Computed example of a mutant assay.
Amino acid sequence: MKKVFFIMDWGIFGLRSYNYILLLFHVLMGNEYSARIFVDIVWLLAALIIPFLFWFPQRRMNKEWFISLELLLGGSYYMKSFMQADHLGSVDYLIPSLIIGYLLTRKTAWTMPVLLVMPFTSMLFGKVTWELALGSSSDNLLFSFIGIWVNFIAKAYHDKNKLAKEIDEQNKLLTQYAAEIERMTLLEERSRMSKEMHDMLGHSFISLIMSLDAAITLLDKNPNLAKDKLIRIRGLTEQNLDEMRDIVHKMGEEENISLVNHVERLVNNFRDYTGTVIRLTLNGTDRVLRFDVQQSILRVIQESFTNALKHGKATEIELGIYFYPSTLRLSIQNNGKPLGKLEHGFGLTTMKNRIERLGGTFSISALAITGVEVRCEVPLKGDTLDAEN
């Protein structure tokens, strides 16, 4: 994207230089040497060189001084030439007008009326007709607008590429975050299961093997005692089976972890892997909710965090969860970019549908100064949303 501005700036530089060099060539070739020719040459050289002391592609970018000096030196030479009768109809200020439009800033907006008035000012001191002044003035204004349009196109292209790069970086960050969360979850579950297997079943299986070895030894010497040991081994095996079933049962009960525990885990992971400041506020008595209710609330929080970082470029997020006797309220505020025209894309539509399917309400609005707030309210009264014990 820098290459576009590089090419356009140097193109403008070359076009302006060509314009003044061409004027110098006409002055040198069209007249015999005189003091007037010498003054014109010095004048044109000053108009060519001095403005470049303040704006030069990729090096100096003081556009305000460049435009002011361009009008002072080049504009005054244009007006002087325009007033001379032998130059009527052959003098223009089109290329400088184009460049002024291309480099225009808010501080130099005053140059547009100056370009419009300059040809009419020449009528006071020369033989310039109304029609010629009007034509030259409209041409200057037209070329300045062309310069503004060219700069707008270049800036739009630059902003588009910059935005695409930022989105790509954010997507990579979020993808890395999701992959890391998944990896950490798998590692955590693997570690938990290995501890369960070691602590709960390791001792039982060692006892089982030792008892079997003893029973094998007693088979020939004392069959009755061997039989008694085998009966005890069978009981131990049943106990081990019950413990295995208990582990599996507990794995299935992971869904019954309270909402606050899930949220705290989500907040800690998002904070660790994105560097975002997240403040969590809890109010009311926590309760265990039905699995699909928890999932809907967690997905709204996840999507809001992702949107705040990806679209709003937020650095701080305020998450509030408020438990009331019959409702659960959720508030997610961020300090990101102000909310523009709201378009319910796939993410927002999914969030809204999730909450409305639970009989709740979903809204998103801009904060007073900057940032966005997502608000949800879900009814909890009755057996439809509370988890079954």
Rank of each mutant, 00 (worst) to 15 (best):
T129Y: 00
N307P: 09
M83R: 03
C376N: 01
L309A: 06
L236M: 07
R36Y: 07
S211W: 02
K313Y: 06
K172E: 14
A154D: 08
L142Y: 15
E180Q: 12
T361W: 14
I50T: 11
T108R: 03
I297L: 10
I317H: 07
N261D: 11
S81M: 10
F56E: 00
F145D: 04
S17W: 12
R190E: 13
N140D: 04
N261P: 00
H344R: 13
A47M: 05
G14F: 07
M79C: 05
M244F: 11
F152L: 09
A226C: 04
M193K: 06
I21H: 12
N224F: 07
Q239K: 14
W65R: 15
T281L: 12
L141W: 08
R375N: 10
T361H: 13
F362D: 00
L339Q: 03
F346S: 10
F54V: 06
D159I: 10
G359L: 02
Q239H: 15
R190M: 11
G126R: 01
S363F: 09
L24F: 10
V4Y: 11
L22Y: 13
P338F: 08
L330M: 05
I257S: 04
G252H: 07
L73M: 05
P379D: 11
E264D: 12
W110R: 06
W10Q: 06
S97G: 01
T276I: 11
L124V: 07
G371V: 03
L132D: 12
N151W: 01
E196D: 00
W43F: 13
K165T: 13
N224S: 09
I7D: 00
M29A: 12
Q170T: 09
K107Y: 13
S207K: 15
R245W: 05
L88Y: 01
V260G: 00
D220A: 09
N171Q: 09
R265H: 05
E318N: 10
Q295Y: 15
L186M: 13
T370A: 09
T361A: 06
S17H: 10
K195M: 15
T217D: 13
I369S: 07
I41P: 01
L45G: 09
L236G: 05
F6L: 03
E254I: 11
E131N: 04
G89T: 02
F54T: 03
Y78R: 05
R36S: 12
V42E: 03
L367Q: 07
N269S: 14
I216K: 15
N335C: 05
S137R: 00
E131F: 00
A226D: 02
L88H: 05
I355D: 01
E356Y: 06
I321E: 01
S138A: 14
I153W: 05
M79G: 02
K195N: 15
L163F: 14
L319G: 03
Y273E: 09
L212D: 04
L319F: 02
Q302C: 06
L236H: 03
G382Y: 11
L187Y: 11
I7P: 01
E318R: 07
I41L: 04
R287K: 09
G347C: 08
I332C: 10
L134K: 14
L339N: 10
L22A: 13
K381V: 04
